[in-house]
Computed example of a mutant assay.
Amino acid sequence: MLPTTQALVLTLVGATLVRLTLTEAHLRYVNDWMRWPLLASGVLLVVVALLQVLRPGAVRTGRGEPDEQDDHGVSRAAWLLLAPVLVVFTISPPALGAWSAERSSNEVPAREAEGAELPLPPSEGPLEIEVVDFVVRVQYDDARSLEGRDVSVVGFVSGDDEGNWYVTRMSMACCAADASASRIMVTGADAPPRDSWVRVTGRWDPLDGGRPRSAMAASAVEPVAAPLDPYG
């Protein structure tokens, strides 16, 4: 791989990182706090590529042969750096959706249940809460603060093999590779299209053979636009 080719590869990778952060498409793959490290990395790669081109001996000699300073091997594996560039620009993978959620556990670890015992704040109408907050309260709130309260949640639609449907939200600690799903079964309403985003309003439907479950008896289901941060 010649220096100019190396510079081109670095430029493409760096430009891809910059593009992902400036368009906020990085939120499909990593947490928002990684925006600035990714942007800095992308700019650095472009600068390194520019220095690679401008350094003495980085171009071919008049005889059409590489300068002897550049007579060193670069692994062909370096071309694999172009793989994520091609994926982002040609496929633009979406955020994780129903397919991943349906294969994820709905159990929230006890270490993430802080605040589950706190009462819900008062509200004049339905109280909007996060899907994961609903699930955590079902699993760990012995005071059953959800009982009798009108709440609304926003998420995308997923299903199961038994024909039930769920309002779902994915969350991640670092990146999409460690994402997990929180799901609330919705009863009393027909299922919207899979992977569509909805706001579900209703009350906790607590019992299934005497065992608490994360389920909501819906009074209203309305479509909403997908949020900028699908893992929020």
Rank of each mutant, 00 (worst) to 15 (best):
79 W>K: 03
131 V>K: 01
58 A>E: 13
112 E>G: 03
103 R>I: 03
61 T>V: 09
92 S>Y: 07
68 E>R: 14
110 A>G: 07
110 A>N: 04
50 L>P: 07
115 G>R: 06
75 S>C: 06
125 G>N: 03
146 L>H: 00
69 Q>P: 01
81 L>S: 02
106 N>T: 10
110 A>E: 12
80 L>P: 02
143 A>W: 03
68 E>G: 05
55 R>L: 09
97 G>Y: 11
93 P>H: 12
133 D>A: 07
89 F>W: 13
142 D>E: 14
89 F>T: 12
59 V>D: 14
145 S>E: 09
124 E>Q: 11
108 V>T: 13
119 P>H: 05
79 W>C: 09
65 E>I: 08
50 L>T: 13
141 D>N: 02
83 A>T: 13
127 L>I: 10
114 E>P: 01
73 G>N: 14
143 A>F: 04
60 R>H: 11
76 R>K: 11
79 W>A: 15
42 G>V: 02
112 E>K: 11
47 V>K: 03
115 G>H: 07
106 N>D: 15
77 A>W: 12
104 S>Q: 15
119 P>Q: 05
95 A>V: 05
63 R>P: 02
117 E>T: 14
105 S>T: 12
77 A>K: 03
100 S>T: 13
114 E>C: 01
140 Y>P: 05
136 V>G: 01
90 T>Y: 08
141 D>K: 00
106 N>A: 09
68 E>N: 07
64 G>Q: 12
62 G>W: 06
84 P>H: 12
50 L>Q: 06
114 E>V: 13
135 V>E: 01
127 L>S: 03
143 A>H: 09
136 V>W: 00
76 R>Q: 04
108 V>P: 13
124 E>K: 04
135 V>T: 08
110 A>Q: 14
103 R>V: 03
103 R>A: 11
146 L>Q: 00
87 V>L: 15
108 V>W: 09
126 P>L: 04
44 L>V: 15
118 L>S: 11
72 H>I: 04
138 V>S: 02
116 A>I: 10
114 E>H: 06
51 L>G: 09
147 E>A: 11
47 V>I: 15
44 L>Q: 06
104 S>A: 15
129 I>E: 02
136 V>A: 10
144 R>I: 00
105 S>P: 10
64 G>S: 14
79 W>D: 01
83 A>W: 07
68 E>K: 14
151 V>F: 00
77 A>V: 13
73 G>V: 10
55 R>T: 07
113 A>K: 10
42 G>D: 05
93 P>S: 09
61 T>N: 15
141 D>L: 00
78 A>L: 12
142 D>F: 04
69 Q>D: 14
78 A>Q: 10
109 P>E: 05
56 P>E: 11
78 A>P: 02
46 V>R: 07
94 P>H: 12
81 L>Q: 05
128 E>P: 10
43 V>N: 08
43 V>A: 12
42 G>R: 06
51 L>E: 12
71 D>H: 12
81 L>T: 05
132 V>F: 01
